[in-house]
Design a protein around this nucleic acid. Structure first.
Length: 480
RNA sequence: GGCCCCAUCGUCUAGUGGUUAGGACAUGGCGUUCUCAACGCUAAAAGAGGGGUUCGACUCCCCUUGGGGCCA
């Protein structure tokens, strides 16, 4: 049996604007689009919506690419750039004018402002009064050759524009509340609305899956599809991510840039897993699952309609889970790459592989490594107060340190278990409280009161450094 | 202001007319313990309000309230 065509090939897209550092909201929407395309054996494309020249940030595009690459959300087509397609939008606008679905508008800013104010005074929505819609098309075309103009969509005066949102169900808009949307701006650039419709159609996008902030633009887009005589894609609108205050996710309360999460030491797989759980739930109630599993189980019908709060505490927990799942070798590699990229440190991978098991259960982000285990790479310094912090019950601190230094110096098998045996033996012999002795040694060896287990630290640090630090601490204590 | 979306523990959510309303994060307690974690056990914690529909509503409908978005 011959297959007629591939008309039903699913195609989704992510279409960020290069107006700044890419936002987690973009990752969120990209994730769902990616998963939907993948499970339907379709395509996922990337389009850069760079027609807003006022807000254009030159390096933003490369950051978007970097962010998506880091997350592993690879696109099958693109990146396309709207700025490279300007003539296409103009042609389409002209086509609509010819079909009497759009018209030239010559109204000045001041007149539009007057119209707006007047409408507001009368308690009416601030819409364009359609003054130029009544102009004779031939005369208007003539004026357009000399005067500044915009092109507006001729929205039907009556009727209803509806669509079946894949997540929310039927949504209706009265046409009479819709404005005659600007399609081409006076600078000759298309508006978002024109460009997005032309592009989605030309690029074969079958499913427009985007944030809920676009719901009220959807009727305009549908009217455009209809004016062109094109088939409609399916629409679905995800809830938007919120701050604890319920406001839109914002910079003031923490990171919102995808690359900021990378820089803090979140794992991309953890961030994605966390994002997947905002508004979506695993059919088996799982909290931790792979990207592959997600792509397989993802279902738009399981997306909830309420806007979720981006809970950074849960993200931290999840990132910790992913770190704990990593093998020693893998974690060592991640740490090495992280330190290299963000701290400019070149650390021996073998050392990091030995440190990895000591920190695995203790850090939630790669960026926390230095605070917990920086003493492995850098010298430590102490004050008397820090060394005496544990009190001197059952023996003076300097007495303890010198005894420990002596016993460790003569030690040949430098291994965690043996070290612990030896030092515990010392405590027993001298009738010192073991926990107090350990704390004193911890501060001496690591310069911290919080560290990975003492004897593991000693083993990794090595005999030479361990002993010299204890002696160094001793000197501080003995100085006046 | 107009239009639109939304409403289960503090947070993320399960649930699709009859459940002791379940799980996860966070929080408290206990255990383990060389600090800190991790881990185990455990506790507290929820269907905004009001009307309907129904033998029966968290679940369906309407209104109110509250939150959010878009348009300028």
């Amino acid at each position: 049996m011959a297959v007629k065509s591939q008309i039903s090939t699913v195609k989704t897209r992510i279409a960020p604007s290069p107006t700044g550092a890419p936002h987690v909201g973009t990752a969120y929407v990209a994730l769902f689009n990616w998963a939907f395309a993948r499970q339907n054996k379709g395509k996922f494309l990337l389009r850069i919506e760079d027609t807003d020249r006022a807000r254009f940030v030159p390096q933003a595009e490369s950051q978007i690419l970097e962010a998506l690459n880091w997350l592993g959300l690879s696109w099958d087509e693109g990146p396309f750039r709207q700025s490279e397609r300007l003539p296409i939008y103009l042609e389409h606008a002209e086509d609509l004018i010819k079909k009497d679905h759009a018209y030239y508008c010559f109204c000045s800013e001041t007149r539009l402002e007057d119209v707006r104010q007047k409408a507001q005074k009368e308690g009416l929505p601030p819409r364009y009064d359609r003054f130029c819609r009544k102009l004779d098309p031939k005369i208007a075309a003539g004026r357009a050759k000399k005067e500044k103009f915009v092109v507006r969509l001729k929205v039907p005066e009556e009727g209803t524009t509806s669509f079946a949102d894949l997540i929310r169900g039927e949504i209706h808009f009265e046409n009479k509340v819709l404005d005659d949307q600007v399609l081409i701006k006076s600078d000759g650039y298309p508006t978002y609305h024109l460009a997005v419709v032309v592009d989605d159609h030309q690029m074969g996008v079958t499913h427009v899956l985007r944030g809920e902030e676009w719901i009220s633009s959807t009727p305009k887009h549908i009217l455009l599809y209809q004016a062109f005589g094109w088939d409609l894609p399916k629409f679905a609108h995800f809830p938007v991510l919120r701050e604890a205050s319920r406001a839109k996710l914002s910079k003031r309360h923490g990171a919102v840039g995808i690359l900021e999460f990378k820089e803090e030491g979140y794992l991309p797989e953890a961030l994605l897993n966390f994002l997947a759980l905002l508004g979506w739930s695993h059919p088996q109630g799982k909290e931790i699952f792979s990207l592959d599993d997600f792509a397989e189980k993802f279902d738009l019908r399981r997306i909830s309609t309420t806007a979720p709060v981006f809970d950074r505490e849960k993200l931290d927990w999840m990132n910790g889970e992913y770190i704990r799942q990593l093998g020693t070798r893998q974690l060592g590699i991640r740490l090495k790459e992280y330190l290299k990229e963000y701290r400019g440190m070149e650390i021996d991978p073998d050392i990091l592989e030995r440190i990895a098991p000591l920190v695995r259960e203790r850090i939630k982000k790669l960026g926390e490594l230095e605070a917990l285990a920086g003493f492995f790479f850098t010298d430590v310094a102490w004050t008397k107060e820090e060394l005496l912090g544990g009190g001197e019950s059952g023996g003076s601190a300097s007495e303890k340190l010198s005894a420990a230094a002596e016993i460790l110096e003569g030690f040949t098998v430098w291994e965690t278990k043996k070290l612990e045996e030896k030092v515990r033996g010392l405590a027993q012999e001298k009738k010192w409280e073991a926990p107090a002795l350990f704390m004193l040694l911890r501060v001496a060896v690591t310069g911290q009161t919080v560290s990975p287990p003492l004897f593991e630290c000693m083993e990794v640090l090595g005999k030479e450094k361990t002993v010299s630090r204890i002696k160094g601490a001793l000197k501080i204590l003995e100085a006046d």
